[in-house]
């Protein structure tokens, strides 16, 4: 049986296709302003890439912020459940997930079957998310691709006390004007994100082994800052960004 999962996030939209439990392929595009069109486009592009007809796909599940805006799917499931299932599918030893996406961050605790036991989400602002990092990278005139690794060269991380994106940007600008090294500022930004996630992890009772998912998992600086703050190693899969879409495709297999 062939199934698909479509994860429509605030910044990017992801798709995954599974055949009898085996991952056939994944794809990622920018969401833009039209969530449903992005969901449709990423799905069609992936089918084309895999040489599959739409009719070959038995069931589709949507997830993410735009999950209810796509009408061609069989069901919409939250990204919290999908990330649990996806992480379990990719690595069945995992017990907790730190997901940092474009506009929110969450910590999810799962059981040995991948079912969600508990979760916590950031409150309704972009602090400590992918969007926050984009704003900071722009203020520092650093390409997002190298942003993460630059912080690993920091001598002494700056202190960013504000977590609000707008206030933190002003703080970063004043650090720049004081002549602080870029590496130290970036490391400070990563530490402020780690502190926020650690508080959530504490609230939800996070247990190792931990995997990190979402676009921000590609930023090694954040991963290292989190490992230091939490005192444990964090696994990052090559499928971190499409983990939710994979989880949705796995759930679609079991759908009745």
């Amino acid at each position: 049986m062939i199934t698909a999962g479509i994860d429509i996030g605030s910044i990017s939209t992801k798709a995954a296709v599974l055949s009898n439990g085996k991952l056939l392929g994944t794809r990622l595009i920018f969401t833009g302003y039209h969530a449903e069109a992005a969901g449709q486009a990423v799905f069609e592009e992936l089918l084309k890439e895999l040489g599959l007809e739409r009719s070959a796909v038995r069931r589709v599940i949507s997830t993410g912020y735009g999950r209810n805006s796509v009408k061609f799917v069989d069901k919409a499931v939250t990204e919290i459940t999908c990330h649990g299932v996806g992480a379990h599918y990719l690595d069945n030893g995992v017990r907790s997930i730190i997901d940092i996406g474009g506009q929110d961050s969450k910590v999810i605790v799962i059981d040995e079957k991948g079912k969600v036991k508990n979760f916590a989400m950031n409150d309704k602002c972009a602090a400590g998310t992918g969007r926050f990092l984009e704003v900071m990278a722009r203020a520092l005139e650093v390409d997002l691709e190298v942003f993460g690794n630059l912080s690993l060269k920091a001598g002494s991380p700056s202190r960013i006390s504000s977590l609000c994106t707008v206030f933190a940007e002003s703080e970063v600008i004043s650090l720049i004007s004081r002549g602080e090294h870029r590496e130290n500022i970036i490391a400070g930004i990563h530490e402020s994100i780690a502190a926020r996630v650690a508080a959530m992890a504490n609230r939800v009772g996070m247990v190792p082994p931990v995997v990190m998912t979402g676009g921000v998992a590609k930023n090694m600086g954040v991963v290292k800052a989190l490992e230091k703050k939490l005192g444990m190693t964090i696994r990052v899969s090559e499928y971190a960004q499409v983990n939710g879409a994979i989880g949705a495709a796995v759930l679609a297999e079991g759908l009745k």
């Binding site: 499931v77 939250t78 919290i80 459940t81 929110d104 079912k115 979760f119 409150d123």
Partner: peptide, 16 residues
């Protein structure tokens, strides 16, 4: 939409 996601996820958890 934040509250809706939390409630949906909470109910998925209870149902499971």
């Amino acid at each position: 939409s934040q509250v809706a996601t939390r409630i949906d996820a909470f109910m998925e958890m209870i149902k499971a």
